[in-house]
Amino acid sequence: MISNKIGFAMGVLKNGLVDFLSENRVNPNLITFTGLTINFFAAASLAYGHNWLAGILMIFAGAFDILDGAVARKSGRVSSFGAFFDSVIDRYSDLILYIGLITYYARIGAFGTVILTSVASMGSILVSYTRARAENVIESCKVGFWERPERIVLLIIAALSNRLDRALWILAIFANITVIHRMVYTWIQTTGEYEESTSDRKLLTTFFKIAFKDFKRETWQYDLYCIAVLLVMFGDKLISYIF
Rank of each mutant, 00 (worst) to 15 (best):
Asp94Lys: 09
Ser118Trp: 10
Glu147Ser: 13
Tyr92Lys: 13
Ala159Leu: 12
Thr113Met: 12
Met122Tyr: 14
Thr113Gly: 01
Phe145Ser: 02
Glu147Trp: 03
Phe145Glu: 06
Val153Tyr: 06
Ile99Glu: 06
Arg151Asn: 09
Ile89Val: 15
Val88Tyr: 08
Tyr129Val: 06
Glu135Lys: 04
Phe84Trp: 14
Arg131Met: 09
Leu164Met: 14
Ile96Val: 15
Ile152Met: 15
Val153His: 02
Asn136Ala: 02
Tyr129Thr: 05
Glu147Thr: 13
Gly123Glu: 15
Ser80Lys: 14
Ala106Arg: 09
Lys142His: 04
Gly123Arg: 15
Ile96Ala: 07
Ala132Arg: 01
Val143Pro: 01
Ile157Arg: 01
Ala158Phe: 03
Arg91Asn: 08
Ser80Ala: 15
Ala132Met: 03
Asn136Cys: 06
Arg163Asp: 05
Ala134Val: 06
Ile125Thr: 14
Arg131Gln: 07
Ile156Asp: 02
Ile157Leu: 10
Val119Gln: 11
Gly82Leu: 11
Ser118Asn: 02
Ala132Ser: 08
Ser161Trp: 00
Thr113Ser: 04
Ile157Ser: 02
Leu154Gly: 01
Ser124Gln: 12
Thr103Lys: 04
Ile156Ala: 01
Ser161Asn: 03
Ala159Lys: 07
Ile102Val: 12
Tyr98Pro: 10
Leu97Asp: 08
Glu147Val: 14
